[in-house]
């Protein structure tokens, strides 16, 4: 609650209410001689004092900055205001133009409403209080009009201040959420970078063992062969995210790169070659079948011509095979 950016405004209304209460007390003391029912004036004043203390605690501490309390605030003021004329003689009321017992104290709820919900709340509250004053006094005077306009103006200013404070807080909150998201992304990026670096390191070591082992020969050559196989397997794994798209298409490159071995080279574009997953499986099976009959080296080339995908396979015995798939999914 202490984070409410409108806190200074709420506390301001409490201070204004205490001051205006003092004014009302002085006013009642000055006028009480002439009142028709002084006891009622003092009773109203007592109620005002009680309400000032209650809203003071409610708004200052923050627990009462709610719609029910503010609505009650407006309602209580209107009731007290409506009771005020009963204190006075008809003469006071109609000719001497004596202010109501609630005086300017009655304007404070409009400010509280502004602090609660911006001008959207402040303006209607000011209008309600203005209307209540008009109904109570029973006459539309220039003085009344001026008071209502001033009250509405005050409510709008407080309301604007509250809205600006809130949107600044919201901007701060969303910018801190944004910063948090950026931090998370940076952390993920860093993890990925580390993983790449580690993978790269492992690949380097495998490649080096493969190369030096073959040069040394003998038993080491067997180690070299194993390292070479693992290097290609890891490279294929890293190159192949292997996920399928929403429409059930897969990247043909990923499927075929799994077939790469030290003797089988798979060449493909740098961009994805998307095919229906069933077609891709069928193609992969065909390539696998061809490769199973190859004893020496083999090359697989994947080409994406837009409306068709071409797979060419060749072995070093000069056996060649070409499979073309129309994007519609027809094998030819």
């Amino acid at each position: 609650m202490t984070k409410d950016p409108a806190t200074p405004l709420w506390r301001g209304t409490v201070v204004v209410r205490v001051f205006t209460l003092c004014f009302a007390v002085v006013h009642v003391i000055a006028e009480s001689e002439a009142y028709q029912r002084p006891w009622l004036a003092w009773t109203i004043l007592g109620a005002m004092a009680f309400w000032t203390v209650f809203t003071g605690f409610a708004y200052w501490g923050g627990w009462g900055r709610t719609k029910p309390v503010v609505v009650a605030d407006v309602a209580v003021i209107c009731v007290l205001m409506a009771l005020s004329p009963l204190t006075m003689t008809d003469l006071q009321l109609q000719y001497w133009n004596v202010p109501l017992t609630t005086t300017v104290w009655a304007s404070v709820p409009a400010l509280a409403a502004g602090a609660l919900g911006g001008q959207r709340w402040g303006l209607p509250a000011a209008l309600v209080i203005g209307l209540s004053t008009y109904l109570t006094e029973g006459a539309l005077t220039v003085g009344l009009m001026r008071d209502v306009v001033l009250l509405m103006g005050a409510a709008v200013v407080v309301g604007l201040a509250a809205s600006v404070g809130r949107s600044a807080t919201m901007a701060r909150q969303s910018s801190s959420r944004m910063a948090e998201a950026l931090r998370a992304e940076a952390a993920a990026g860093e993890r990925e970078r580390l993983a790449r670096s580690i993978h790269d390191g492992v690949l380097q070591v495998l490649a080096r063992i493969h190369k030096r082992g073959l040069e040394v020969g003998g038993e080491t050559a067997e180690l070299a062969r194993l390292a070479g196989e693992q290097e290609i397997a890891l490279r294929a794994l890293l190159a192949a995210p292997g996920e399928s798209t929403e429409d059930g298409e897969v990247d043909l490159r990923s499927a075929l790169r799994v077939l790469a071995t030290p003797a089988v080279q798979v060449s493909a574009p740098a961009t994805r070659v998307l095919l229906d997953s069933a077609v891709a499986d069928e193609l992969t099976a065909q390539v696998r079948e061809f490769l199973s009959g190859v004893t020496g080296r083999a090359w697989v080339l994947v080409e994406d011509l837009g409306d068709e995908v071409v797979i060419s396979i060749r072995d070093d015995g000069d056996g060649e095979r070409e499979v073309r798939v129309q994007r519609k999914g027809v094998l030819t």
């Binding site: 080279q265 060449s267 493909a268 574009p269 080339l301 080409e303 011509l305």
Partner: peptide
């Protein structure tokens, strides 16, 4: 040119054409 690079370059020309 390795076979792999040739596949990449072919793919790049086709990507640009498309």
């Amino acid at each position: 040119f390795t076979a792999g690079l040739a596949g990449l370059v072919l793919g790049e020309y086709r990507r640009m054409a498309a």
